[in-house]
Write a protein that binds this DNA or RNA. Structure first.
Lengths: 343, 343
DNA sequence: GTGAAAGCGCTAACAT
DNA sequence: ATGTTAGCGCTTTCAC
């Protein structure tokens, strides 16, 4: 492939002039500029960004590491970041860790080696060691959808307590009074927070509404299947008319079991999820859930990252932006007719 | 950040030795190796991949450009390619063109500038000019899910005629006899091919089954809404009991209209899509569709790409791999009870 | 405004 | 086995 010096020779100018045409066209005489651009076109010159970054010492790219690209939240994050980046003439490189923590480390290291100007990280678990390493190398890193609780980097979060609150509040608003919160142990941040929000909404309702908490081993469909079996009898006995599953995947599994056992959703029991995950949209009934604002999260994350890059290591104060979640009402809580009017 | 020569100084060896430790450890004496690795650890050295690529003239990364990462087919493609790449110690960089053709061009150029060793492209429309440019630069490019019809590069396709055939065949198998194929004009490859497959299945059924073809302006939900309105009367009149929508999104919109008008799906009419797109899973009823084999497509694409890279510009024969689609049966054609038994 | 030259951090001969 | 050195393609002073 032709290099910048081939272009220079072809155009009959010096190598440095071609570089100026590429980077500071204002500093070049119009006639020269045209000559060089013609040469570039004729030779089909394509700048080598490796050499460019090496020489310039800076990059127009930021890296985005997501733990699972098949989760629609992370897709939305990627799209939000990319759109904003495009507006700014920057580039977002996306790496998918495919739910493997070692792959996530590899992805972070890859971006570190590539000397990207900053990294957006949307992890599932604490990744503080890896992040600390990256940041020690002087590479700004913004956490997405995960609260380190240490204020040691910028973060963009959704108010997960509000997620739980909105969910419980919705069920209460549609007249449900015997609720269950189905979710794993609290070691996962969102679970603990959503649970707290659910409790708050129930508490606000006074004694009118009861809440039962149902633990599950995992947050995936199999976990939901087991949990649901215990719930069927309660629904039949009139002791349960609303279920909040901490994830959509869990909710979907629960609905599946209910359907198989002849329990009517939402007639007998309303069921909803909490993370508006399109992977869970394949269920029997469209799921009411809570929107996690992925697009905004990506966009805001990029904004914070660029601010930190611009500020440099000193003179930067870490910021945490908390996004407001939004309820998405569909059939699994209000039935088909009511859901249609929402369209 | 420390460079390779910092490491050399710190370890008391020559720069080239450090390079050998990194790239050809077998050529280094055990004692020296350990000394150098210690220095690397102490200094927190991270190799600069820009410099490495520049010097070595080759890259361990390939680029994947997808037209729309929110389409689950393309997510599957990315995951398939990445998994295979990880096994081989390679890296897949994903760029999402967000349905914009100019962004797609920008993504291709970005990878061209980054001197990746090859490119996987999953486009929506003909991108031959851009691809030709990239390939002229000596960068192998494999097309995914798009048939250029020119045999000018390797391709991985799904047999879209078979997709249509499977769809029609399924409806016929469950006893439907008055079918409609709802799809846009044939300028989109998959539409034309699926239509042909549908016709073949109907023809095979002899005179028992009728087929009506319903054109739509677009393949998105609004297009489906309009098309569906004309279909309602036919269903009521008993002149239609099976609908094949060329995309899941279209199918979902049709089901929505049917639901709103009190037409029972699948009781009165079975409806199915053709591209197993999770973005369409939010509909009233889980959709029967045809699986497009995204994971296999990504994996096979990467395999072909690496083969071409290894073979070099000469001595490479372009290959087209055609994947077999698979029917995915859910409620929209067989009803809830039958769908449950499929689980 | 333009040209010459010194690196950026690394790889790969080549020499020792 | 280890050290030396010439680039890879580009940016960026610094003279002209």
């Amino acid at each position: 492939m032709p290099s910048i010096s081939d272009v220079a020779r072809h155009a009959g100018v010096a190598l440095g002039t071609v570089s100026n045409v590429l980077n500071h066209p204002a500093k070049v005489a119009p006639a020269t500029l045209e000559k060089v651009q013609k040469a570039i076109a004729e030779l089909g010159f394509v700048r080598n960004s490796n050499a460019q970054q090496l020489a310039a010492g800076r990059s127009r790219s930021v890296g985005l590491v997501v733990i699972d690209i098949s989760n629609s939240l992370f897709v939305d994050i990627a799209r939000g970041a990319q759109r904003h980046a495009a507006e700014l003439g920057m580039n977002v490189l996306v790496a998918n860790s495919d739910n493997r923590i070692d792959q996530q480390r590899a992805d972070l290291d890859f971006f570190d080696e590539a000397r990207v100007s900053g990294i957006l990280l949307a992890p599932m678990e604490d990744a503080s060691e890896d992040v600390a390493r990256i940041r020690r190398h002087g590479r700004p890193t913004v956490m997405l959808n995960y609260d380190t609780g240490r204020g040691d980097c910028c973060q963009v979060l959704v108010d997960n307590e509000e997620v739980g609150y909105l969910a419980a509040r919705h069920l209460i608003d549609i007249g449900r009074t015997s609720l269950a919160f189905v979710g794993g142990r609290d070691y996962l941040q969102p679970v603990a927070l959503r649970r707290r929000g659910v409790r708050r909404a129930v508490a606000e309702a006074g004694g009118r509404v009861t809440l039962e908490e149902v633990p599950t081993e995992n947050l995936d469909p199999p976990g939901g299947l087991r949990a649901a079996e215990g719930l069927v009898a309660k629904v039949r006995g009139g002791r349960l008319d609303g279920v909040i599953a901490v994830t959509d995947l869990l909710a979907m599994a629960i609905i599946q079991v209910f359907g198989a056992q002849g329990v009517d959703v939402p007639g007998d029991v309303a069921v909803m999820g909490c993370d508006h995950n399109s992977a869970a949209w394949g269920g029997m009934i469209p799921l009411t859930s809570v929107q996690m604002q992925g697009l905004d999260m990506g966009r805001e994350g990029l904004r914070l990252l660029l601010a930190e890059i611009a500020a440099g290591p000193v003179g930067h104060e870490h910021v945490t932006t908390v996004l407001r979640p939004e309820l998405v009402v569909r059939e699994s809580t209000v039935g088909r007719a009511a859901a249609l009017t929402q369209l």
